[in-house]
């Protein structure tokens, strides 16, 4: 059974069809790419999947459950996490605090417990340790106590990934994770995405402009243009598809 599937998902903003009739299929452990020219509707797809906006029509099925109309926090609690194209860290908090906040989903507390803070020290210790472990995996351990705003762009992107990972997702949505990174950082990121997928046993859906990154690590690619799916398949198939070349890649790339 597919981990994530969408059924004729559409989003209309006024007269503009940002996404029309999208049907995505993502299996357990897939690493899939979603590409397309600027304005093709990629981020809108992410916004619909993660519950930030409600689709005009269509359905999102995640892990066998219709999550189309669930609020964003409940979708996160069911195991879908995302990062943002324009970084949205809690900038005035430290890197560690950013990650710890995301561990919320594993710690259920009642109003009274929060008020009285029963065994707060124990909880805090556990969360801090798990958060530090995650930062370690992403090579950010030495940045843990820096204010998130003060990190480099590339590092902030990694913190976003760490924060998303802290919700312990089954599916990770990455919105242009390599934007603003230099080729060296991009390469490290490719390795990292592969590594966390293996180590944490999760699926990844990736929006990316960096062709090397997408073609290098994705097993399947969906290409959007003006909100329509114009191609789907392996990197080789997509690369060879004339509609993709016309709409997106441009002749010089091929």
């Amino acid at each position: 059974m597919a981990l994530l599937s969408t059924e004729s998902l559409s989003m209309t903003f006024g007269g503009l069809r940002a996404v029309s009739n999208l049907s995505l299929q993502l299996e357990m452990n897939d690493l899939q790419g979603l590409i397309g020219p600027n304005g093709a509707g990629k981020t809108t797809v992410f916004n619909m999947l993660s519950g930030m906006i409600k689709p005009t029509t269509g359905k999102v099925i995640f892990d066998g459950e219709d999550i189309t109309n669930l609020p964003a926090h409940q979708i996160t609690q069911r195991g879908m996490a995302r990062t943002f194209q324009n970084i949205r860290l809690f900038g005035s908090l430290t890197v560690l605090e950013n990650v710890k906040i995301a561990f919320h989903r594993h710690v259920t507390y009642s109003f009274m417990q929060a008020l009285l803070q029963l065994n707060i020290a124990h909880h805090e210790e556990n969360i801090t340790r798990s958060a530090m472990d995650l930062l370690d995996v992403l090579g950010l351990a030495d940045r843990a106590h820096h204010q998130a705003n003060n990190l480099s762009y590339g590092e902030q992107r990694l913190v976003e990934i760490a924060r998303a990972m802290a919700t312990q997702p089954k599916l990770l949505l990455l919105d242009e994770p390599a934007a603003g990174m230099n080729p060296h950082e991009t390469e490290q990121l490719m390795n990292l995405i592969g590594k966390i997928r293996r180590d944490f046993d999760l699926s990844v859906l990736l929006i990316e402009h960096d062709m090397n990154l997408v073609m290098g690590i994705c097993e399947r690619i969906t290409v959007l243009d003006y909100g329509m799916t114009i191609a789907e398949g392996s990197p080789e198939q997509v690369r060879a598809n004339p509609r993709v070349i016309e709409a997106y890649l441009g002749e010089e790339v091929v």
């Binding site: 964003a72 943002f84 906040i101 998303a164």
Partner: peptide
């Protein structure tokens, strides 16, 4: 919004 996506109600 980012908070909601961290699973915070």
């Amino acid at each position: 919004e980012a908070a909601a996506l961290m699973g915070i109600n």
